[in-house]
Each structure stands twice: as structure tokens, then as C-alpha cells.
Design a binder for these strands. Structure first.
Lengths: 245, 245
DNA sequence: ACTATCCAAATAATCGATTATTTGTCAAGG
DNA sequence: CCTTGACAAATAATCGATTATTTGGATAGT
């Protein structure tokens, strides 16, 4: 038997385009479904940061047994959204200013590096994917009054950033970036209902994308770094407003 | 209740110095113990890369029930040593030339970045830890004839590299570096029984450490990068010898 | 009043058995 | 001869019950 040989950190089935019309959404087992629901619950803030997760209550809330619940939680640990301690159980990872700052710093390092590699190695297919992701994002309205538009926008925004770096040919790096994006999104969903007035985010995305497909390495990387940095600065302000250290 | 607030990716209890004389080695639950044993089994090559992990057999081998077995395996997924697919089970992550090259590249980027941050932010305590880790490593003999010395050396080597970057004040980054080191160690344990003749590894470590505590950023970073690079090159040759693509 | 110790309730971990899914094999049809 | 479908064996996922650990509170001793 020849192993598939995707290597470690091959992209998980999550958020695959799901091209087949069948109802196979890659979330077969209860454990998988739970992982998704819990992830969404944490990123959206439904499960408060830092709070303990009582297995018994969660079991009743989600109407499942312990085994798949632990299974699901275990996956969120890989995502950095949940922490675990022997005999003490699970808790939602805390948020803090230091944590946000680290995430921002690391995104500036990792994501920018991944973009550079993508520009160096990406093929035409990748270019096309970038332009499509950009278009879909910029065509999607973000109306603070309607939460469902926010969620949709977040999804496409995440997709855009991941697509940008998807050409780098480095599964482990992509995995790291995906984690950082997860962690970052929790802050954004919690604190940014609307983008600050002095930014034109659509334009920022366009500049990055256009620089990327034009293979203007330094320009695109610089734009991305600034983009990430600005988001970090914005979020930091919002955290300060709410008195979070 | 005030949350401990270590933030995501706070260092796990693994390989803590275990200062207390008590038999509490932080591996309380069967799941934890299994995770350690499995990790060791994978890194040492006892469990072949790419091979499927049959839950039933593993259950009998380790004489445990399914729940803790899954628990343990789940943790190794976070470590990148095990892959999982719904309804298809677990398998040991494959090794490949591409995978090794990515690990090496990422170590050059991120471990070096972490070292730079450590030099920028580390305190005297950190400096002391570095010198101690260096001393212990260099004083430990590595005799290819006696496997137990190799294991001991690997442990101290790992400890040295982690200590070098432990002052960076960035838990997530440390977590990533720890993973990369894990993945890298599997290659070394599998392919390097002795260091290639043209290297004086002890001296390389000394140069890095001394540059680090002297806060000679560029020098220390450069030495570390070369050190990682050389190891990568060596391993690549050994992989080629064994016909691994 | 303060600390330490012991109990009971709450919670996490584990087990053995059951259910669901996948995989390999073989026969029927093209 | 190849493909397709059905079946059976192998394997993974889940459940409900049991066991072990932690936590909070009451009690006794200083």
C-alpha cells in the first residue's frame, strides 16, 4: 500500500470548496461536527474567553456523549482556542493584550513570509484563486446591522488571506498561518463590528492582491504587513476601550 | 475566579524540570502517559512513518482502553506527528524530502527570529539558563555504540535549542518552534547516528550561546541559521542515501 | 481567628459493549 | 475481461455506566 503522502499538516478537510453536490460536507462524525460548532461558538464569542468548559453541561447542551465531546475539544486544542489540563478539564483560551500583540507580530512575520514564498512559487492557478477571492470579498457587503453579513464577510476575508498564501507550497507554514488567523478572528469578531473610518480595507486588499499577482514581492509584502499591522492597532484600541489588559 | 491567564499555547507541562521530589511527574492520566509513550515511539522510529495505527492492536499493545488511546493520539496530532481522518483513523505522519526541507526552512526563519527576540528581551535568568543548557550538552558524551547516550544527548540538545529561544516572551512562537523541533528530531534520530566528520557541533553550539548572552544579535542569529542549515543538509544526504524522496 | 484535615459533592477519566462506517471479496451482469 | 453491487469482516465512533480525582466546605485543633 502506497501512503498518500501528504506529509504532516496537510490541509485538513475544513473549509474545502465542497465542489460535489452531495451532502458529504466532510463533517461526518459527531466529533467533527462538534469541533466545528465549538470553534464557531468560541470565535464568535458565544463561549466566553477564559471560561471553563464543564463537560457535563456541554454534553447536555449539545446533546452528545462524552467521547465525541472530548474528541471535538481535542481538535480545538490544536487550534489554540482551547486549553487543557490533566484532571482539570478544558477551558476556552483567554484573550489578552499580550496575546493579541503576539498574534499580530507573528502574522506579520509568518504570513508575509508565506506570501513572499507564494509569489516566488505560485502558478497561474494560484493567481486566479487570489483574484477570485479578492473579487468575492470586495463584492460582499458588510452591514453592521445585519450579523449574517458580518459572518459572511469574515468567512470570505479569512478565505482571501489564506488564498494569498496558498501558493507557498509549505503545508506546515500554512497550518501555522491558519491557526494565527483563527486566533486573530476571535478578536476581530469580538471587537470590530465596523472598520475604523480612516481605512479603506477593500483598497488595501486590492493593493495586496494586485501586487501579488504582478509578483512585485517587496510591494505586496509591505502592503500585507501594513494591513496586518493596522488591524492589530485597531484591535488594540478596542481592547483598551473595554479595559482588557 | 480569576483565570490563570497564561494565554493560548502556554508551555505544556511536558519535560518540565520536575523540581519537586514527589512522584508527580505531570503525567497523571493514562491519556497523558500514552501521549508520551507514543511520541517517543514515533520520534524514535519504533512506529514507522506513514504507517496506519490500528486502534484495536494499539489498544492491546499498550493494554489500555479506547478512550485514553484516542486522547493520547489526539495530542500527537497537535504535535504534527500523527494525522487523522474521519472514519479512517490515525496514521503516523509520513516523512519525505519535501517535509524535511520545509522543517529546515521554517526553523531557519522562526527559530532565528525567536532567538533574536530572546536576545532583545531576555533577562539574566535567561542568560544563565542558556549557559547551563550549553554546559550540560557539551559535557554529555554521544557514543553511537550506546543508544542510551544518544537519547540523553538528543534530550539535552532539544533542551538547549528551546532554552536559547525561551526568552522571547512569545508563547505561541515557542509552541511552533517546539513542534518544528519535534518533527526535526524524528529525522535526526532516524538518520543520524553520528555527526558528520567535518562538523564540530559542540563548538557550533558554543558560538551560538556565547553570541546570544553577549547580545551580539547578528552574529548569534547567523550562527544559529548556519547550524540549522548544516543539519538540514546532512539529513538530506542521509535521506537520499536511503532513497527517500 | 487561623490553619489543617477530612468528608461529600462535583467533575473528569476510563472502561466494556454497542452501533456505524469502511474495506475487501466475490458473484452477476455487461 | 472489466465493471458493478452486495455481502461480510475489519475497523472506527459512540454510548452509558463505572471509577478516580479534584474542589469546596465543615470540623477539629492550635
Amino acid at each position: 500500500m502506497v501512503p498518500d503522502h501528504d506529509g504532516a499538516f496537510a490541509p485538513t478537510t475544513e473549509d474545502a470548496p465542497s465542489s460535489s453536490g452531495f451532502l458529504d460536507d466532510g463533517k461526518n462524525t459527531i466529533g467533527s461536527q462538534l469541533a466545528s460548532r465549538l470553534r464557531e461558538a468560541i470565535i464568535s464569542g458565544e463561549l466566553q474567553a477564559g471560561s471553563k468548559i464543564n463537560l457535563d453541561k456541554a454534553r447536555k447542551t449539545f446533546n452528545v456523549s462524552l467521547s465525541p465531546l472530548r474528541e471535538g475539544l481535542a481538535r480545538l486544542i490544536s487550534d489554540g482556542l482551547v486549553e487543557f489540563e490533566d484532571n482539570r478539564g478544558y477551558r476556552v483560551s483567554s484573550i489578552s493584550l499580550a496575546n493579541l500583540e503576539e498574534i499580530t507580530t507573528l502574522r506579520e512575520e509568518f504570513e508575509v513570509f508565506a506570501l513572499r514564498e507564494s509569489m516566488r512559487l505560485g502558478d497561474v492557478e494560484w493567481e486566479g484563486n487570489v483574484m477570485r477571492a479578492l473579487h468575492r470579498l470586495n463584492r460582499t457587503e458588510r452591514d453592521a446591522a445585519r450579523p449574517e453579513t458580518l459572518e459572511r464577510w469574515e468567512e470570505l476575508h479569512r478565505e482571501f488571506h489564506l488564498t494569498l498564501i496558498s501558493g507557498c507550497g509549505k503545508p506546515i507554514l500554512l497550518h501555522f498561518c491558519r491557526l494565527l488567523l483563527n486566533l486573530n478572528d476571535r478578536y476581530r469578531r469580538a471587537f470590530l463590528t465596523r472598520t475604523s473610518g480612516d481605512r479603506n480595507v477593500s483598497q488595501e486588499h486590492s493593493e495586496i492582491a494586485q501586487g501579488a499577482v504582478a509578483r512585485d514581492l517587496d510591494y505586496a509584502c509591505d502592503m500585507l504587513r501594513q494591513h496586518i499591522h493596522r488591524t492589530g492597532t485597531n484591535l488594540r484600541k478596542h481592547l483598551a476601550t473595554k479595559g482588557i489588559l
